[in-house]
Amino acid sequence: MIYNEADAEMLNDLKNRLENEGAKIEIIAPSMAPVKISDGTILLPHHSLMLRFIMYYFRK
């Protein structure tokens, strides 16, 4: 999960390590709005917490 001003160095390091092991990275954020991390990079979430909550709630 990411948020505005998340540590870009830590995020990129984690992303690179996981991808090197074959993982597929998908970004989760509080909403589907673009997120600006600490180095100014803007990331677009693949999923949002709010959308996941709504989908879970209505599947019950």
Results as ranks from 00 to 15, higher is better:
residue 7 D to M: 04
residue 1 M to S: 14
residue 3 Y to E: 15
residue 24 K to F: 12
residue 38 S to I: 01
residue 9 E to C: 12
residue 33 A to I: 14
residue 25 I to C: 00
residue 8 A to L: 08
residue 15 K to M: 12
residue 28 I to Q: 03
residue 46 H to C: 03
residue 37 I to S: 01
residue 56 Y to D: 02
residue 50 M to D: 10
residue 58 F to I: 11
residue 17 R to M: 12
residue 47 H to E: 06
residue 37 I to R: 01
residue 1 M to W: 03
residue 14 L to K: 10
residue 26 E to S: 13
residue 46 H to E: 04
residue 23 A to F: 09
residue 10 M to A: 15
residue 26 E to N: 15
residue 47 H to Q: 14
residue 10 M to W: 06
residue 20 N to Y: 04
residue 18 L to V: 05
residue 20 N to V: 02
residue 57 Y to G: 01
residue 11 L to W: 03
residue 1 M to I: 04
residue 58 F to M: 12
residue 42 I to Y: 02
residue 27 I to E: 00
residue 30 P to I: 14
residue 52 R to N: 09
residue 26 E to G: 06
residue 31 S to L: 13
residue 19 E to H: 00
residue 51 L to Y: 05
residue 11 L to Q: 01
residue 13 D to V: 04
residue 52 R to D: 08
residue 21 E to C: 05
residue 4 N to A: 15
residue 53 F to G: 00
residue 8 A to R: 09
residue 47 H to W: 12
residue 50 M to E: 11
residue 34 P to L: 06
residue 22 G to D: 11
residue 30 P to A: 09
residue 20 N to K: 09
residue 12 N to M: 11
residue 58 F to Y: 13
residue 46 H to Y: 09
residue 56 Y to F: 05
residue 8 A to G: 11
residue 46 H to S: 08
residue 22 G to W: 03
residue 24 K to P: 01
residue 56 Y to M: 01
residue 26 E to Q: 09
residue 25 I to M: 00
residue 7 D to S: 03
residue 19 E to I: 05
residue 43 L to W: 03
residue 58 F to G: 03
residue 48 S to R: 00
residue 30 P to L: 11
residue 13 D to R: 07
residue 36 K to S: 05
residue 40 G to P: 02
residue 60 K to Y: 04
residue 47 H to F: 15
residue 25 I to T: 02
residue 56 Y to H: 07
residue 41 T to M: 13
residue 21 E to A: 10
residue 53 F to H: 08
residue 49 L to W: 07
residue 56 Y to P: 00
residue 50 M to K: 14
residue 36 K to E: 08
residue 17 R to D: 05
residue 2 I to A: 00
residue 3 Y to N: 14
residue 51 L to F: 07
residue 8 A to M: 07
residue 49 L to D: 04
residue 29 A to P: 12
residue 20 N to H: 02
residue 27 I to R: 00
residue 18 L to G: 01
residue 24 K to G: 04
residue 36 K to A: 03
residue 25 I to H: 00
residue 49 L to V: 15
residue 6 A to F: 08
residue 27 I to K: 02
residue 18 L to D: 07
residue 10 M to N: 10
residue 5 E to L: 07
residue 9 E to R: 15
residue 54 I to R: 04
residue 11 L to C: 02
residue 29 A to F: 08
residue 5 E to Q: 09
residue 32 M to P: 06
residue 42 I to F: 09
residue 2 I to K: 00
residue 47 H to A: 07
residue 39 D to Q: 06
residue 18 L to E: 10
residue 55 M to W: 05
residue 47 H to N: 07
residue 13 D to Q: 08
residue 57 Y to E: 11
residue 40 G to D: 02
residue 18 L to C: 06
residue 1 M to T: 06
residue 36 K to G: 02
residue 8 A to F: 13
residue 52 R to S: 11
residue 30 P to E: 15
residue 54 I to M: 11
residue 32 M to G: 11
residue 22 G to L: 10
residue 18 L to N: 06
residue 28 I to N: 05
residue 40 G to Y: 08
residue 49 L to G: 15
residue 3 Y to V: 11
residue 38 S to E: 08
residue 12 N to A: 06
residue 45 P to K: 01
residue 36 K to M: 13
residue 10 M to R: 12
residue 50 M to S: 13
residue 23 A to N: 05
residue 4 N to Q: 10
residue 16 N to W: 03
residue 3 Y to F: 15
residue 49 L to R: 10
residue 35 V to F: 02
